[in-house]
């Protein structure tokens, strides 16, 4: 039977796109878009990942059912910060109803292979955004 590390070596044969993911992720991590405080926000939401102590808050200004401006703040690992940054880019100007439909896979596809533990890091910002939108719209928040 092949050991885990032997299989890892096998995976290493395809470093090209993995590298690209890493670079894009790193770029968002080092230069996060939409990070900071938002004055006069219509809603703010916050959550944490108890396992690693990551904490993300998201605030938004709403106009005509759209996320006119959104910003995130908090601290977390590279995956968590990069995914927040990517989400800010993606969701700005988006209809709230549409943002509620962003899927886990849409977020995770930015990261290539990540372990189940780190999936939580990647999904924290999406969870917070949906939490905020739901409380603003007076809806029940999705379980995830």
């Amino acid at each position: 039977m092949q050991s885990y590390w032997e299989m890892q070596e096998h995976f290493d044969v395809i470093p090209m796109d993995r590298q690209a993911y890493v670079e894009e992720v790193m770029d968002h991590y080092k230069n996060p878009r939409g990070k900071g405080k938002l004055e006069h926000a219509d809603f703010c939401a916050k959550d944490e990942n108890p396992l690693c102590g990551d904490e993300i808050s998201i605030c938004a200004k709403v106009k005509a059912g759209k996320l006119q401006e959104i910003k995130f703040d908090g601290h977390g690992c590279a995956i968590c910060i990069a995914s927040s940054s990517m989400l800010m880019e993606k969701a700005t100007g988006m209809k709230m109803e549409k943002a509620l439909k962003i899927k886990r896979e849409d977020v995770l596809s930015n990261f290539g292979e990540i372990s189940p533990v780190r999936t939580k890091c990647a999904l924290l910002s999406l969870k917070v955004l949906k939490l905020g939108i739901c409380s603003f719209l007076g809806k029940k928040a999705p379980l995830e």
Binding site: W5, L51, C52, G53, C77, A78, C80, R118
Partner: peptide, 20 residues
């Protein structure tokens, strides 16, 4: 962030703990 350190060390075959 400790998570990033642990994940990158894992790629080098080094297992450490990260978190609280």
């Amino acid at each position: 962030h400790p998570h990033d350190v642990a994940a990158l060390l894992d790629e080098e075959g080094i297992a450490i703990r990260a978190g609280h």
